[in-house]
Amino acid sequence: MEHIGERIRMIRNLRIWSLIFLLPGLALFIYIVVLPTIQVINSSMYNWSPGQVGTFVGLNNFTQMFADPSFRDALLHTFVLLIGAMIIQIPLGFIFAYLIFRRYIGSAFFQTVFFIPMVLSSVVIALLWTQVYNQDFGLLNSLLRAVGLGDLTRPWLGDSSSSLISVVVVVGWQYVGLYMLIFLAALQRIPHSIFEAAEIDGAVGVRQLKSITAPLVIDTLKLSVILVVTGAVQYFNLIWAMTQGGPANSSSVLASYMFIKGLQESRLGYAGAVATVMLVVNLILAIGLQRVFRREPLELG
């Protein structure tokens, strides 16, 4: 009995010390994440600008926001960006990771090349792709003219019908290297003996990829989807540097809409309402995806 009592005291002390070590990080999280979030949600109930006392307006900011066509356009464009980023980043990231994992000739070189966009600032990437999309001397239009498709040339960022998809392509290109590394790390954790056993059983090439490799990285795929979704909802830097949401709001997203309302028009309460909607959208998408992934697990083939 004395031994059991000593063990209980040790467990209790361990829990107390664990809580003590967790408190500084928890306090910091509350101070820099929880409290500012509560403050932003609270500000969304007020009509206020810098240097002025806020006036409580309840849900009026939200009513105005949902009635604004520009907000609805920004919300739609955000979901287009989300879907486009997912279509580009995850498949290409996995393909590049798999090719590098199989150690084809030049794989180390391409691993570095694919990751380069991740170490460049968004402003540098925006300037680079603005030149690519230039109507007069840009690489894209020059290539189209060279292959006899001059009728397809256009001011890609200056045309409301092509500005959004042009930006989506750049956002996808920028983060392919990140998901390549994530998938590559997942592939490298798979024991090599599994692949050897699969080859002995005749599972090679596409069959091995489908039956062995893909199921073993499914958890990484789920994580990548959540990262893409939550990142796309709050994406801002590159879009603002390339188009500032234009022309005519054709490439605006929720983050750029919030920036315009908050910092250009000085409607901080209204911007707080937009930020609150972004938070809710992110939470709904993240929680919804987690529930979907938990309900539909993939089994090893």
Rank of each mutant, 00 (worst) to 15 (best):
R207M: 07
S266A: 15
M10I: 10
N61S: 05
I90F: 08
M258A: 14
H3R: 15
V123H: 07
L227R: 10
L28S: 13
P191E: 07
L289D: 08
V53S: 14
N282H: 03
S163D: 01
N47C: 04
L300M: 14
N61W: 01
R9C: 00
L181V: 15
G54M: 06
M278N: 11
L14R: 12
A197V: 13
W17F: 14
G84F: 01
Q111C: 03
S250T: 04
L75H: 04
L14N: 04
E299N: 13
A97G: 09
L14M: 12
L263W: 12
I32W: 06
P215T: 05
P155T: 08
Q52D: 10
P155E: 04
E199G: 13
V147H: 03
L19S: 15
V33P: 00
L144K: 05
S49G: 14
G288A: 10
L28I: 15
G177T: 06
L81N: 13
I116F: 13
G205F: 02
Q188S: 10
A185T: 14
F29T: 11
Q135F: 09
W17N: 00
G177M: 03
L35H: 07
P117C: 05
S256N: 09
Y270A: 09
H192F: 07
V228Q: 12
I32Q: 10
I125G: 01
F259S: 03
R207V: 12
L143I: 08
G231Q: 02
Y98I: 00
G158A: 05
V123G: 01
I125C: 02
S43K: 15
Y104W: 13
T153F: 03
F115C: 07
R72H: 01
S70M: 10
V80F: 12
F79K: 13
D201I: 01
V40E: 10
Y270W: 04
L28G: 13
Q234A: 08
D73F: 00
L164E: 09
V80W: 12
P215Q: 06
F109L: 15
Y98K: 09
L187A: 06
G288P: 07
M86F: 14
G148C: 03
I95Y: 07
Y257N: 02
L178G: 11
Y257T: 02
A275L: 13
Q89I: 00
L76C: 08
L187Q: 04
A74L: 00
I88Q: 12
S252V: 05
G177P: 07
V277G: 04
M278Y: 09
I105E: 09
L285Q: 04
S122L: 00
I190Y: 12
G205N: 04
R12S: 03
G245I: 04
G269A: 12
R294N: 12
V292Q: 02
T153H: 02
A286E: 06
Q64F: 11
V119P: 02
I87M: 14
G158P: 01
V292N: 00
R7L: 12
L263Y: 14
G150K: 01
M180A: 03
